[in-house]
Every structure is written in C-alpha cells, then in structure tokens.
C-alpha cells in the first residue's frame, strides 16, 4: 500500500528551486530516514508533501481534504512549541483532534490512543506534569507522543531526535522502528548518520533539492556519497556490537 507518493515535486522560492523535481513513494512498514546537509531541502520537501507550502507536481496527500489528510499523516515540526502551561496528557490528547467532532470530549478509544502514545514514549511518570516546566528533551518526547496519538498510517518527523540524550535517542528510534514493524511508516529527517544507518529500513539522501540516492542504508551511505554530500569520510565498520556506520573525519 502506498502511503506517500510524490511525482515531480518542485518547490521554488523566488527564482531558486528549493526542491527540484523529486519523485518518491513510501509504502507500508518502512522507516525512512531523510538525510542531507543543512539547507538540502528536507524540511521543505516534507512541508510541501503536507500541503503546508505551495508546490508543483503531484502528491497523494495534497489531493486529500485537510480533515482526511490529518487522518492519513501526522506531522512533527522541528520547532518544538508548547505555548501554554498545560499538562502533558492534554498536549498528547491534541493529537486526537482529527477524530473528534467539534466540541466533543475524548472518548474511550481516544483515551486508549493517548495512553498508548504516552507509554510508547515512556512518559507515564510525566502525564500529570506541566509540559512547559519539563526539560527541552522531555518536551520533545511529549510532542512525539502527541504525533503518535494521531494514530496515522504515516508519521513525518523533522529532526525528532535532535536534543535528546543518547538513551532517548535510541529509544525513540526504536519506537519508530517498532511502528514500521507494526505496518505503519515513518519519514524522519535525521542528522545522526550512525543512528539512521542502524534503525532505518531505507535512507533517502538529498542535496540541493534533488535526490542523490535512495535505498537501503548500506547502498546509500557509500564512501563517495558521504564525502560528496556531507564533506566527511564515513564507513561501515565492525564494532563490538555488530556492523555500524561511523563518521570518521572531515574530508580535507
């Protein structure tokens, strides 16, 4: 089943093509890491797919009505915003808005989805706490739980693990991988290449608005690609805990 399909997507800002003729499809059960240097167009690509930006080309999500789109894809923006001192459970429950009629309160299945999202992100102990009083990393996890509570086949996340401690980076990546195992899909912009290589089922490498490589991590993170796009030397190497990708040094 195709959850996301982009055909010849182009986004222009002024005369510059920020996204240049990108086509891709994402099916069920994939954890796709969207990688590329700063300014490559990762955020723009996802926002255009979500119809948050004007774009040319076709995208299955853009053809949906906004209310249908909110049940097809959840969006976790990079900007971590919790504007008011509300409690954690309230923030997570905002993810249920697409399923609730106007003015209705949470029903049993909404509560179940909220509880599930809270436990998936290990936030049980925080449920009653005021979200704005949590640390930045804890807030990030609350917002991921919010997106999970939306319970959509596809989750798009913009740098979801930036600013998390190592343990929570790992647990978040594992949670996304679990989602993919359950038949859902995740498209996440990532900067941590080793973690992306380890957990993603597929990587899409973009640079200057174009797809450079798309495939399994080992096929995408080749020495040439990594040197060309990121300007660093990196390689898969045997570690004590199996084969892992390592970033070694900047290319002179």
């Amino acid at each position: 089943m195709t959850l996301l399909s982009l055909e010849h997507m182009t986004v222009t800002r002024g005369a510059r093509r920020v996204i240049d003729d990108v086509s891709l499809t994402i099916g069920a059960g994939e954890f796709v890491g969207l990688i590329g240097p700063n300014g490559a167009g990762k955020t723009t690509l996802m926002r255009a797919a979500l119809s948050l930006l004007p774009a040319k080309g076709t995208c299955n999500l853009r053809q949906l009505k906004p209310s249908e789109r909110a049940r097809a894809v959840a969006w976790l923006p990079q900007q971590r915003e919790i504007a008011w001192p509300v409690d954690v459970e309230t923030v997570v429950a905002l993810g249920r808005i697409p399923y609730l009629p106007r003015g209705a309160s949470l029903r049993d299945d909404d509560r179940a989805a909220v509880g599930h999202a809270v436990s998936r992100m290990g936030l049980e102990a925080f449920a009653g706490r005021i979200a704005t009083q949590l640390s930045g990393g804890e807030q990030a996890r609350v917002l991921i739980a919010r997106a999970l509570a939306q319970d959509t086949p596809l989750l798009m996340a913009d740098e979801p693990i930036a600013g998390l401690d190592p343990a929570h980076q790992l647990s978040t990546m594992r949670a996304f991988a679990d989602l993919a195992r359950d038949g859902r899909s995740v498209l996440a912009a990532l900067h941590d290449l080793p973690l992306a290589a380890r957990y993603c089922t597929r990587l899409i490498l973009i640079d200057a608005g174009r797809i450079v490589a798309d495939g399994p991590p080992r096929a995408v993170l080749t020495e040439e690609n990594v040197a060309e796009v990121f300007g660093v030397r990196g390689a898969f190497a045997e570690t004590g805990a199996g084969v892992a990708f390592q970033v070694l040094e900047a290319v002179p």
Binding site: S67, A70, V73, W75, W84, I97
Partner: peptide
Amino acid sequence: DALTLGEDATSALGL
C-alpha cells in the same frame, strides 16, 4: 487548543 503546538502542527491537524 491546537495552536498550543504552533501554526504548522495546527494545519497538519486538519484545521
């Protein structure tokens, strides 16, 4: 309520 999460997230919630 949704705007607690910012404008982008609000639009993506179908509002």
